[in-house]
Computed example of a mutant assay.
Amino acid sequence: MKSSVSNCPVPTDQQPLNEYEQLKTSWLFRDCTLDWRQYLTKMVWIWGISWLVAGPVAAASFPPQKNLAHFILSGAAGASVGVVLTLVRLYLGWLYVRDRLYSMTVFYEESGWYDGQTWTKPPEVLSRDRLIVTYDIKPILQRLQFTFAGLAGLLLIGTIVWHLL
Rank of each mutant, 00 (worst) to 15 (best):
M1F: 14
G78D: 05
F62R: 11
L68Q: 02
S111V: 05
T41L: 02
A54G: 02
K42R: 06
L87Y: 03
I49R: 02
L164K: 07
G158D: 12
V133H: 12
L34M: 04
E110I: 06
S127Y: 07
P64Y: 14
L68T: 07
S80F: 08
G78P: 03
D99H: 06
A77T: 13
D13W: 09
S103T: 09
K24T: 03
L131F: 14
V125T: 13
L151I: 07
Q14G: 11
A69V: 06
I140T: 10
P9H: 06
E124M: 05
W162Q: 03
V84H: 05
L95S: 13
Y102R: 13
T120P: 01
K66P: 03
I140F: 11
L52V: 13
A77I: 10
Q15N: 05
T134V: 08
V5H: 14
V88R: 11
I137E: 13
T12C: 01
L144I: 14
S4A: 15
S74C: 06
L95P: 00
L95R: 10
V83F: 03
G78V: 02
A77P: 07
I132M: 14
A79V: 03
T12V: 10
W113M: 08
L126D: 09
D31I: 01
I157T: 11
T33Y: 08
F146T: 15
G78R: 05
L73T: 01
S111W: 01
L87T: 05
L165V: 06
F107T: 13
M43W: 02
D129N: 15
R143D: 11
G153A: 15
A77G: 11
I72V: 12
W45C: 09
N7E: 10
K138N: 14
V10A: 12
T12A: 12
V106W: 12
